[in-house]
Design a protein around this nucleic acid. Structure first.
Ligand SMILES: [Mn+2]
Ligand SMILES: [Mn+2]
Ligand SMILES: [Zn+2]
Ligand SMILES: [Zn+2]
Lengths: 137, 137
DNA sequence: GACTTACTTTAGAACTATTATAAACTTTAA
DNA sequence: TTAAAGTTTATAATAGTTCTAAAGTAAGTC
């Protein structure tokens, strides 16, 4: 993804392309494979890759802005360290979770097939279905 | 479940049957249906049902002791309010989650059937598989 | 029943992920 | 260039949970 398309992505989401947002967007979206991260791990990556200063609040703000704009998703898993995981894969998919390494691995939607799914209770509808496959060594 | 069996349950788990533990055990285990709760909600139930005083730390200690003894399970879901859910259903099962009410509903293991499950990555094994079906109204 | 020891409860402090605040700074468009 | 709106920042606040260490209780021994 080129710099101009990062700028477009930000602008078309109503987000001014500040130095911080551009750096975060480059780190998150200029890659082929899914990136799963926490705010803390993202901060460490940024510190390694750039010389720009990032206040913790800015990383939170930016990640939440990207999520709101639909460029990131949140994994509703309660990991060991009780931190929120974000995901550059915004398609419907599932996860392996290795609780020893706190690592998430994508499972494509078509790698899991259901034979039987219960129907939603009284008056409710199914919004989505998440599978977490916990791993051990 | 009778009082004596509550006492046996505690003693056979190496837990002295203190006033607090007995009250919590009665509330949690003397029921037919699954009970999903947070430490906070359990505290409120206890305040309503008994006149015994419960320090917050005692509720945490007891719930964790019961979990360790295998009498409770923890739901690895990151809910709206970022609290941990515990579950009196210790069998392998799944959940509906209503994020508007923060409510969990059990899905029996046999209500979901899989046609296809991915195999675990390199050298790892599947420990268990959790399904969360998110609901909307 | 008194004594002893190990275990438990408790209030409050500490910890940690996250969110709020409000002042300084930057982007944008006029 | 200027002004308005948006953004970053340091820091404080919040909230769930865990830690601490002192006071209290359970259980076994005499
Ligand atoms: Mn978050
Ligand atoms: Mn907990
Ligand atoms: Zn993913
Ligand atoms: Zn359950």
């Amino acid at each position: 993804m080129k710099k101009t398309s990062i700028l477009n992505k930000l602008r078309s989401s109503g987000l001014r392309p500040t130095k911080q947002r551009v750096e975060i967007a480059k780190l998150l979206f200029n890659r082929d494979k899914t990136f799963h991260f926490t705010v803390e791990s993202l901060g460490k990556h940024l510190a390694k890759k750039t010389t720009t200063k990032f206040a913790l609040a800015t990383i939170y703000n930016t990640v939440h802005a990207f999520k709101k704009a639909g460029h990131l998703s949140e994994v509703h898993l309660r990991g060991k360290n009780n931190t929120t995981y974000f995901d550059t894969n915004i398609s419907n998919h599932h996860h392996f979770y290795d609780s020893e390494t706190s690592e998430l691995i994508d499972i494509n939607d078509n790698e899991i097939k259901f034979d039987k799914i219960p129907k939603a209770p009284n008056g409710k509808t199914i919004k989505n279905l998440e599978v977490i496959i916990n791993l051990k060594n």
